[in-house]
Design a protein around this nucleic acid. Structure first.
Lengths: 331, 331
DNA sequence: TTGTAGGCGTTATCAT
DNA sequence: ATGATAACGCCTACAA
């Protein structure tokens, strides 16, 4: 049993050095595994640290080294599997590069998003990953000018200060629509619960694909609080619907069940993001897959490149893929 | 357009002071809105800061003040709505108390969980919220002795060093089983995909309730990689199943659809956590609700109390509630 | 191999 | 109202 320190006071490297009977610089070297430390004093220091329950103070370390070893991720929805898939990739790659990841949750609130970004920058993260298309351009510009910043969503007009890694939302929507057209659907709707740049890009894709097929186009926007009106949709003859994400598609499928609308028989449904939810639903959900984990990994690399000196903005676009499941009829 | 600083170098309070033509102490006061600063010099400083794009360095601040203003949340699953609901509560209350929240994701990996906890402590968070029952006792003891720590899951034997806020898992499971019994079910199973202390507590509740009802008890444990075998369950006469969470219940409902098992007619299903998923499924899912947001809020209060001097461990237990939906027959 | 000393950016104490 | 100055805990030349 080791004597406890005064409440609130945590042991410092000086305490460790004293207890080990060495100078604080030597303690510092030993603790970090620097070369040029005799085995004996290394053991002395390590033992002392262990006994005292020493923890390096990363504030002090960050201050003197000028880097924090931290990658910050700010996302606007914690319970969105598309976002969390990206975080997984970020964490994987960060670990390989010996960096730590901290996450800030924007809670679907633009103001909170901004607060989180501020917090990260003040924490002096070495890189910032933003998974949201709700961040004002001006905020992105400033963030990007202060720290290597990567935005992982579609941006209508990304500022030069930030890197962007996205998947081709226009093409993804086209893929989905083409799949529906090939299956013989004539009246295809796009149903969105979001008004982001991402959703807008998907609308563009839908329009393109439907024009090419010379088919009518129905765009439905439902605000957060409102209910989806499936009957109205059916009444207007819609026989297939592409949703802005899997969550919205899940809502549609539930409503279809409730209203005895056969999926895909009477109504084909396609989601977006290909999250775990797509496999969980019945009927299982056809969806557009984005390489979330890889995108997250690349984001960390982009930060590393910036740190290494790259100055041009990165504009990376991944190609999404159609994953066919039971919510659409096979052509 | 302001002259840019040398790459990599961020303006400090000294730069601001110089530009404003005042001492750094005065700049510091002005920046923090301290009283005792003349309006004129305050404006001077604030303008200078604005022009330079000054950001306080929280490492330096944290070092000298001894507090970071940070609350750390470590959770072992980012895409678990029960966990994210708690985070929401933490964020709400932290904001009211003027603290910032950073999140660490354990990624379902005990080793990573520990790394995240270490990171938070080294970052000198003022309080630590742990949403996981996978953290070794020893790690909790150490964390709790270094920083006010609150664990938000059921713990078989919580260390004296940490506060715990949980909901009564034994009672919750009892509630669920009693609901099934009242509906006339005779062969009730508990199906779990987790072997945590939380799940064990729910098993205890199931056993208690079934013994009281003098009904047989079936406990099924399915490991992460394995599939749920619904046919086997049906073959053994099970007509109702309580799942360890809503996600597992969703799997059961999908399987039931696939195998033409009527829910709730042939098989009643109850989830746990009452997440958004419960409302999304068809049939909608009866589930056990935990006051996640409130629990998250209370966690921040617990931290504040500790900081204010409380030394006894907090042991708070919330009472869960049954939310009846369509996946169980009305009694 | 080890120790000394200076400084990272900020706050706070003490003068003025 | 304002300004020196000494910490905070750590790292890193530079010396020994």
């Amino acid at each position: 049993m080791v004597a406890e320190l005064a409440a609130g006071r945590r042991p410092t490297i000086i305490d460790v050095a004293k207890r080990a009977g060495v100078s604080k610089s030597l303690a510092s070297r030993a603790l970090r595994g620097d070369a040029g430390v005799s085995t004996s004093s290394r053991d002395l220091v390590l033992d002392a640290a262990q006994e005292l329950g020493y923890r390096p103070n990363s504030a002090a370390r960050s201050l003197v080294r000028g880097v924090s070893g931290l990658v910050g991720v700010v996302l606007n929805q914690l319970d969105n599997q598309h976002h969390t898939g990206i975080v997984q990739g970020v964490q994987e790659r960060a670990k390989e590069l010996n960096a730590r990841v901290i996450i800030g949750n924007g809670a679907q609130n633009p103001e909170e998003l901004q607060r989180q970004i501020d917090t990260m920058i003040e924490l002096r993260v070495d890189g910032l990953v933003i998974v949201s298309s709700w961040v004002p351009r001006q905020v992105l510009e400033r963030a990007g000018s202060e720290v290597p910043t990567v935005v992982l969503t579609h941006l209508a007009d990304p500022p030069a200060e930030v890197d962007t890694i996205a998947s081709d939302d226009v093409y993804g929507a086209q893929l989905a629509v083409e799949h529906l057209v090939q299956a013989g659907h004539q009246r295809i709707a796009y149903l969105s619960r979001s008004a982001s740049a991402t959703s807008q890009a998907r609308i563009d894709g839908v329009v393109l694909a439907l024009e090419a097929a010379q088919l009518p186009c129905t765009i439905v926007q439902v605000d957060a609080g409102d209910d989806i009106n499936l009957q109205e949709l059916s009444a207007s003859g819609v026989d297939a619907v592409l949703c802005n994400n899997d969550l919205t598609a899940a809502e549609v499928i539930r409503l279809a069940h409730e209203q005895q609308v056969q999926v895909p028989g009477q109504l084909a449904v396609i989601g977006y993001d290909n999250t775990a939810l797509a496999r969980l639903l019945y009927p299982s959900l056809t969806s557009i897959d984005q390489p979330q984990v890889n995108m997250g990994r690349r984001a960390v690399d982009a930060i590393a490149e910036r740190t290494a000196g790259r100055t041009e903005a990165l504009r990376e676009l991944y190609t999404p893929q159609l994953v066919v499941r039971s919510s659409t009829a096979q052509p």
